[in-house]
């Protein structure tokens, strides 16, 4: 019963001062955002929210989870997503909701009914504010994961360096997921470019540990099984020291200091193979 009356009083209050409240709300929020969002846009957003809040309260709902607030929930999630993309902080977004409390304060008469109504609204707005924070975090996570995907795409190009030679300039740390992508791309490139030589350049790999070496070895073995030779290049002095200190064995895989050396090695090998395979009349 008492809850019902609280909602009733809120609906009245919000209906009576609609224009006043919205104007003040826009002013308060506009101040906190320090002009990074145009007033017209802000007013449109907040007016929508206000209307949704009123209709939610009018339906008798008081907790943000209830069906009556479905509209304002989706509005807030949308608003929070946009704010997250525009680079606003979660605080700034949440304040947009909390500011309505501040706006309402002066119009309270101080009667018990008003106080109950205000507390009711306050609780509701707290929940809605938290909702925006949640939506904000979710949006940021989506952005981060899509950026990680883009990074994976960007950071593993396979280039044709010469006839029969492809190279993969690796940039960044090599983990299992990236090794998989690098391996797939490299092996496909071997077929596409009909290459018998592959150069894996690790100039851009910040550190080589046993795990990274393991991934490199896997890639080399896979390329070998398809019939291509691999050279690892771009081993900086620092990295060479680490490799020796860790006792990493690259076995019979040729390693070179620079990409240029590796290319020369690859071309020499192609030349030597061609000479050795020269057709002497018969098939063999």
């Amino acid at each position: 019963m008492t809850e019902d009356r609280g909602a009733q009083r809120l609906v009245e209050l919000l209906a009576d001062h609609e224009d006043d409240f919205v104007t003040q709300w826009v002013a308060t929020v506009g101040e906190s955002l320090s002009g990074r969002l145009s007033n017209a846009e802000l007013e449109r957003e907040l007016r929508d929210l206000y209307a949704a809040l009123r209709s939610g309260l009018a339906s008798g709902a008081l907790a943000s989870r209830e069906d009556g607030f479905a509209e304002i929930r989706s509005l807030l999630v949308e608003l929070s997503r946009n704010r997250a993309r525009q680079g606003f902080t979660p605080t700034e977004t949440a304040i947009s909701v909390f500011a309505l409390k501040q706006v309402l304060e002066p119009s309270l008469t101080g009667s018990a009914k008003d106080i109950r109504a205000y507390l009711q609204l306050s609780r509701l707005l707290d929940e809605l504010g938290l909702l925006t924070a949640e939506a904000y975090a979710r949006t940021r996570e989506e952005i981060i994961s899509s950026q990680a995907d883009q990074l994976l795409e960007l950071s593993t190009p396979v280039v044709k360096l010469w006839d029969g030679v492809v190279a993969v300039p690796l940039v960044g740390t090599l983990d299992s997921a990236r090794t998989q992508v690098v391996m797939e791309r490299l092996l496909q490139a071997l077929i596409d470019y009909n290459s018998t030589q592959a150069i894996i350049d690790i100039t851009g790999v910040p550190a080589v540990d046993t795990q990274v070496a393991q991934h490199l070895l896997k890639t080399v073995v896979a390329a070998r099984m398809m019939g291509a030779d691999c050279v690892i290049s771009g081993i900086r002095p620092q990295i060479a020291q680490t490799i020796v200190a860790l006792g990493i064995e690259f076995g019979d895989i040729p390693t070179k200091g620079t990409l240029a050396d590796a290319l020369r090695h690859a071309l020499d090998t192609i030349e030597r193979d061609k000479r050795l395979a020269e057709n002497r009349g018969s098939l063999l």
Partner: peptide, 27 residues
């Protein structure tokens, strides 16, 4: 000499821990 191994096959063999050492391969 084993020829024409597909990338997916090569990756599978590596994951299985087989290196086909001693087998000549070509594209």
């Amino acid at each position: 000499v084993v020829v024409g191994m597909r990338p997916a096959v090569a990756i599978t063999l590596v994951e299985l821990g087989l290196t086909l050492g001693g087998v000549r391969t070509a594209l």
